[in-house]
Amino acid sequence: MMTAPSQGKQKRSAFLLFLFSFLLLIAGIISSLKWGQAAISWRTLYEAVTYQGNDKAHLYIQTLRLPRAIMAFVVGVHLALAGLLTQLITRNPLASPHIFGINAGASFAVVIGLVAIDGLSLFGSIAFAFVGAALGALLVWSLAGSRQQHVRLALAGIAVHFLLSSLTEGMIILNQHSTDSILFWLVGSLSSVVWGDVHSILPFTVISLVVLIPMIPSFRLLLMDDAVATGLGQRIAVVRAVGGLLVIALAGSAVALCGPIGFLCLIVPHIARYLVGGRLAVLVPLTGLLGGCMLVYADWISKFIAFPYESPVGIVTAVIGGPFFIYLARRSKSRGMAE
């Protein structure tokens, strides 16, 4: 049993960790607003964010850089929480919306909508993304079989991911009239974000958090064996279904607006779990905060990869996430052999 001094120490450590992460986020947003293709002075930046000026430089920050930074944070929160929930639902450290076929399914469905419907609306893209995300997840789940071992589930997800990605690329080749914009979107990009996109994703953020936060005690059941949880009188299938719907809502809306930004949903939950352990009451908010923070910095770095031209943020997350996934897969395989 944990003593009062150790509990107080844990609370202070968690508070300092959240404070540091928040300050890191603020520094990332300020960096994203100040440095980029155009040089901005500190005075101009202050006047722009406080809406005390309306010349060209102020409007550039207010209408381009500011919504982009906010969208990077919100999408980072979506993807990180979707990754954490996917790992909880499957009890699989290798699971994520990207590897689980959700992102690829959403991307495939959105491209179908863009090709089939001329002038597809933003909410139409989101609707297609939700359907594609659900179908992608069901396909992976069915291929993995009833005994969904960690590596087997990951391999099924990778197979479905490459299948849907190939079909998506084939559709783009056959419909080259919109190839340039779709290809940039497919890698994951925040470069074309405007305030309308921010306003479109925020309702999904609010609704998902309103459902997720009260469900945190129930999600602890997913850490137990299904037989034990059922024996305690808990409806584990309902909890898992709600978690799946949250994953689709969070990942689907993010993909519809910014493309399939890979690996962030896999990396961040592991970093947060390493910092605070498995306490979901602390793990869930820290995962969201770190996810938003990481994507803000990744988007800022993407501005300088091919400076002065823009690069998709998905390049940065893939460079970080690829080796990290290989490390997790090797560690999971070693543990499986040891057991």
Rank of each mutant, 00 (worst) to 15 (best):
L135S: 02
V255E: 08
A106F: 04
T168R: 00
Q7V: 15
G76Q: 06
G8P: 05
F263A: 11
P312W: 12
F304W: 12
V296E: 01
A229M: 05
R331Y: 14
F73W: 11
G119F: 04
T168V: 02
L19C: 12
I61A: 03
S332G: 07
I172S: 00
G288M: 03
A14M: 12
K303H: 13
V247P: 00
L155V: 10
L122Y: 07
F162D: 11
R12N: 15
G231D: 03
A281V: 11
N92V: 15
L223T: 09
Y51V: 15
Q176N: 12
V313K: 07
G292N: 05
N54T: 03
A14W: 11
L153T: 13
S96H: 05
Q7G: 10
L174R: 09
I112M: 10
F184N: 15
V242C: 06
F108R: 03
S334C: 07
V115G: 01
I126S: 08
V49P: 01
D225F: 01
D197S: 08
L59N: 05
F100Y: 05
L246I: 04
L167F: 14
A133N: 03
I305V: 08
G262K: 10
A127M: 13
L250K: 04
L122M: 14
L289Y: 00
D197A: 07
G157L: 13
A72N: 00
T230W: 01
F324D: 07
L174V: 09
G157N: 05
A144M: 14
G231V: 08
G145D: 02
I182R: 01
F15Q: 10
S302T: 12
V255N: 05
L81I: 04
L138C: 10
F15T: 14
V242F: 08
R331D: 14
A329W: 07
D225A: 09
A80L: 02
V239Q: 00
I267N: 00
V276I: 13
L257D: 06
F128V: 06
L174A: 10
S142A: 14
W300N: 14
I326Y: 08
F219V: 04
M71Y: 05
I261L: 02
P5V: 00
A254I: 03
L79F: 01
K333G: 07
L64K: 00
S181Q: 15
A251T: 06
A129L: 09
R279A: 15
L85N: 01
I261R: 02
K303Y: 11
H98D: 12
L190E: 13
Q62W: 01
A329I: 15
T317I: 13
G28H: 03
P67H: 02
F128K: 01
P93N: 09
K333R: 13
F123Y: 07
W42Q: 13
G288C: 02
A109V: 05
R12S: 15
I305C: 05
I182E: 11
L45Q: 05
I40V: 06
G170K: 14
I158N: 10
Q87C: 09
R43V: 15
H98P: 01
I315H: 04
V282M: 12
V238E: 08
I248V: 12
Y327T: 15
P308F: 12
D226I: 03
T90N: 13
V313T: 14
Q62I: 00
R65H: 01
G288N: 01
Y327F: 09
Q148F: 08
V228K: 13
L135N: 03
F307A: 04
F263K: 08
D180C: 11
L264Y: 08
S181G: 11
F123I: 14
R335G: 06
S189A: 10
P203C: 06
A241W: 11
P67L: 06
